[in-house]
């Protein structure tokens, strides 16, 4: 197990009291696995990534039975220990890549920063030279051939896709074991998205790098994804093997998402309207008690005011009192 998260709860103090923005989230990622986390914006999926990276400030209260990366407890690290993991074994790329590049430094300067000292040998000048060579290599690896032009460019001169490639180059500088990709392509055109996904899949295949992909659209995930976790309003709804989960969703939320996405379009009569999930996502101030999907769920019954536990059936997991598509097991 590369990443092991058990019952992660992240709370924030609001004027009306403490709110669990994320509630008892479970997430496991194995070595060499691509795992996709799907949820609407505001569902708290980025919060998970930030908790892993240690980006959350003191105003967030993090609690977990386990938040481990390999044998390291990510919740109890000194700054120095964290630096030995973050940027080394765990790397991250972001949505809106351009804003994650320093506007006043050239691409070369920013990439050189990502090359770790421990990967270099020799004196100061030798290291400097190696650093520069590494940067060129990195650019080639993400498919940028015109490296001399690119090296002297500033972020404002790049396209969104190129900026994301630079971020990827920076992230893979040390061949991380886990790459967290927080909606890396949500602002891109489909063609550029495919390019970025191809790049990620390539590194996955070549280095056995695990990827935690975060996406808000079930229709825009990497086709190589082995596992899916559906998150809604801070609760994990369902997780499991991608194929099985999409073919036989156990959870009403997954079912609804599948119906609204283009995924099942072929099964619908032509020109029919997309069915949508009634209502809107609850705000953090007015979270429903029990199952947070309750007010919008077509299958809800009185029992749903109790928070459903996370049940496991083989390698599938779901949190619902009335799961779907389970008849054959019963």
């Amino acid at each position: 197990m590369l990443l092991d998260i058990r019952n992660l709860t992240i709370a924030k103090d609001t004027p009306t009291g403490r709110v669990n923005v994320l509630e008892r989230v479970n997430l496991q990622i194995n070595e060499g696995e691509i795992h996709t986390l799907v949820g609407e914006s505001g569902s708290g999926k980025s919060l998970i990534a930030r908790a892993i990276m240690g980006f959350l400030s003191d105003s967030w209260h993090i609690q977990a039975d386990r938040l481990w990366f390999e044998e390291h407890d990510l919740l109890n690290l000194t700054a120095k220990q964290r630096r030995a993991i973050i940027g080394v074994d765990i790397a991250m790329i972001f949505q809106d890549a351009k804003s994650y590049l320093d506007p006043n430094l050239t691409i070369s300067e920013q990439l050189q920063e990502a090359v770790l000292d421990q990967d270099l040998t020799g004196g100061f000048l030798a290291r400097r030279k190696q650093r520069k060579e590494r940067v060129v290599q990195l650019l080639h690896r993400v498919g940028i051939k015109e490296h001399s032009n690119m090296l002297e460019s500033y972020p404002h001169e790049l396209s969104e896709g190129a900026a994301q490639k630079i971020m990827i180059a920076s992230a893979i500088a040390h061949r991380p074991k886990l790459l967290i990709a927080d909606e890396p392509t949500s602002t891109m055109e489909p063609a550029t998205r495919q390019q970025i996904y191809r790049l990620l899949a390539q590194f996955h295949a070549r280095y056995g790098m695990s990827i935690l992909l975060i996406s808000q659209d079930l229709g825009a995930i990497m086709k190589e994804t082995e596992r899916l976790t559906m998150i809604y309003s801070g609760q994990v709804m369902e997780s499991g093997n991608t194929r099985e989960l999409l073919d036989q969703p156990h959870h009403p939320y997954t079912e609804a998402l599948l119906n609204t996405s283009l995924y099942r379009q072929a099964q619908r009569p032509p020109r029919s309207r997309l069915p949508t999930l009634a209502g809107t996502e609850p705000s953090m101030q007015h979270l429903p008690i029990g199952c947070r999907l309750g007010p919008r769920c077509a299958y809800a019954r009185p029992k749903c005011v109790q928070t459903p536990g996370f049940s496991k059936k083989r390698d599938r997991g779901f949190a619902c009192h009335y799961p779907l598509n389970l008849e054959d097991d019963a």
Binding site: M53, V88, A91, M92, D96, S99, L101, P103, E113, S170
Partner: peptide, 15 residues
């Protein structure tokens, strides 16, 4: 509060 500061930390740079 800018994103490129976050990405600095993501690279594993010290404060």
């Amino acid at each position: 509060s800018q994103n490129y500061i976050t990405s600095g930390y993501a690279k594993g740079l010290s404060i």
